[in-house]
Design a binder for these strands. Sequence first.
DNA 1: CTGTTACTTAACGCTTGTGTTAATTAACGG
DNA 2: CCGTTAATTAACACAAGCGTTAAGTAACAG
Lengths: 125, 125
Amino acid sequence: MTASARIDRIFSALGDPTRRAIVQRLALGEVTVTELARPFAISLPAISRHLRVLEAAALVRQERDGQFRRCRLDTEGLQAAAEWLAFYRHFWGESLDRLDEHLKSSVPRAPKIKGRNHGKHKARR
Amino acid sequence: MTASARIDRIFSALGDPTRRAIVQRLALGEVTVTELARPFAISLPAISRHLRVLEAAALVRQERDGQFRRCRLDTEGLQAAAEWLAFYRHFWGESLDRLDEHLKSSVPRAPKIKGRNHGKHKARR
DNA sequence: CTGTTACTTAACGCTTGTGTTAATTAACGG
DNA sequence: CCGTTAATTAACACAAGCGTTAAGTAACAG
């Protein structure tokens, strides 16, 4: 697999608001698929496929636990994306130290669950 | 415009290898559209539309110069993406300082132009 | 066994994305 | 003016993406 294809999958995966919301939810902790799906206004199969995409991008990992599948963050994809972007840091002249400061000083709010009615596809029934 | 829609556009824009190659090219310096398009195996209109997408994502800016349009990086989108990802840094326990080190120590190779025959759509004529 | 719960896979439809060629707009150069 | 160069917009084709419902698989619970 080429490096480009890997980064492709990561950024494409993060381009969907439902999938970013899943990542944000998993940042709070491990959950089963059904638990994960509950806050969303889309069907379970839809969530299931988002999870495939996130797994292929190394953003999420799933592990079987009897009847359940536990999902958690996979940092590999996030790291890869961060490193790709870090290459361009000097263009905005912000050292990572200063970015670090900025982030530490901002309120560490929990990510909100988004992804309902995001307007790309309406539920039709 | 919602914050989510903005991040949407940025990650979706970066999800395409041709567009990432454009960003990489512009990191080397300002160019006109035709110059920018030359290394790619796709038509000028296709490049032109990629530029629209990149502009909408605040990743590229275009400025008229007589007969030409000069394109350059817009760091706003890159920053926004980096900040979104930075929220998850602590999950892989890497401080930005250490990431900084890592990047400084690696060879500062120029980004390569990719995006030809990336397999998503074959040229048909 | 049998039914229930937790998912995933299959099949389908609509929308979006990406490419093409042809036509258009705008500036430059004689 | 008139032709050339630079780039965009228009119109179209086809693939990919994301949603749905229905059917399949696997573990659990009685």
